[in-house]
């Protein structure tokens, strides 16, 4: 099977104004056709920046990008002009935590979906409108005919999220980039939207990169997980492997901190300290200052990326030389 997306050694650095942030520091990952990959990590670990790089959504003047991103064999970092706008929203589209980033407040939901379809396909306004209706039905918005004429603010939070999904999927993308689309929703609504996305993904056979900080959400949606820390991927594996046998000390800490099954009153196994601020790119294991198993060699160089099994990758010295 060939990968739909292949990211190699991606680096992203924000500069300007004296201070620089090394947000992404050598990320390599690939997503197969029809696969759902979760990017799991804490805030500031570089998840959103990685996603935005794929669509060139970062401010070009202040951003320095290195490495390569290939989509269906093409170099997407080189796309420009018409080719880039065909790519965005046509082959790859994105949904966000805040639907205001995708939905324009001054147009009705129906008009926005129709507009997007017409931009990417040569069809009449009428056909585009009926596609919009079909999309609202697909995301199971109640009374879809009426909702076509709604402005975003006339919808509830869960419904706006569904409308944004309808817009994103209206041109049948091969890849959906989902940046914490359920994080701001109430628990019962979050689960509705997760199940909807899972069903649509299967039905349409698309690939998804789903960014989340919540391991429970990853379990519900993902086939595979890449765990990010300080702009690097520390561990990759299937969701089942990660849950059953987390190898990297950071992944283990994250799982414990989820409190799933924590005993009331017992002390929590908290990871001490906080993530690094990334003014410098990491020159040794970025987790070393917080790692309970750190050894001198962890602070000497970047840890090796070891493959303990097919499709499994762990960036840690312990993996290279088990104690």
């Amino acid at each position: 099977m060939s990968a739909l997306v292949d990211i190699r050694d991606l680096t992203v650095r924000f500069g300007g104004g004296g201070r620089s942030v090394h947000a992404v520091n050598g990320v390599s990952l690939s997503v197969e056709k029809g696969e759902v990959l979760a990017l799991l990590g804490e805030s500031g670990s570089g998840k959103s920046v990685t996603l935005k790089s794929i669509l060139q959504l970062l401010p070009p003047k202040r951003t320095k990008i290195g490495g390569s991103i290939r989509f269906d064999g093409r170099d997407v970092l080189a796309l420009k002009g018409r080719a880039l706008s065909d790519f965005r929203g046509g082959e790859v589209s994105m949904i966000f935590q805040d639907p205001a980033l995708a939905l324009d407040p001054v147009y009705t939901v129906g008009a926005q979906i129709a507009e997007t379809v017409m931009r990417h396909e040569s069809i009449t306004r009428e056909a585009a409108m009926s596609r919009a209706l079909e999309m609202l039905q697909k995301v199971r918005i109640p009374s879809p005919e009426r909702r076509l004429k709604n402005y975003p603010h006339e919808m509830s939070g869960g419904m706006r999220q569904r409308a944004m999904i309808a817009l994103a999927l209206s041109c049948n993308p091969k890849l959906l980039l989902a940046d914490e689309p359920t994080t701001a929703l109430d628990a019962t609504v979050q689960m509705q939207v997760l199940l909807l996305l899972r069903n649509l993904q299967r039905e349409m056979g698309m690939s998804v990169i789903f960014v989340t900080h919540d391991i429970g959400v990853a379990v519900e949606i993902a086939d595979r997980v890449a765990v990010m820390y300080a702009g690097t991927i520390v561990e990759t594996g299937t969701i089942a492997e990660i849950m059953k046998d987390p190898r990297h000390p950071y992944t283990r800490g994250l799982l414990a901190a989820n409190l799933h099954g924590a005993v009331k009153g017992a002390r929590l196994d908290a990871i001490p300290g906080a993530p690094p601020t990334l003014e410098e790119p990491p020159s040794f294991c970025p987790f070393a200052p917080r790692c309970p198993q750190a050894r001198p060699e962890c602070r000497a160089a970047l840890p090796p990326v070891v493959e303990p099994g097919p499709g499994r990758r762990v960036a840690c010295v312990l993996e290279a030389a088990p104690a």
Partner: peptide
């Protein structure tokens, strides 16, 4: 009961199949 069943399952082999509730509050 609905709030509790909206908690993610934490078991990739036993994912949630049915949404706990329809609609928003």
């Amino acid at each position: 009961a609905a709030l509790f069943s909206a908690m993610p399952s934490m078991d990739p082999y036993a994912r949630t199949q049915v949404p706990p509730l329809a609609g928003d509050p």
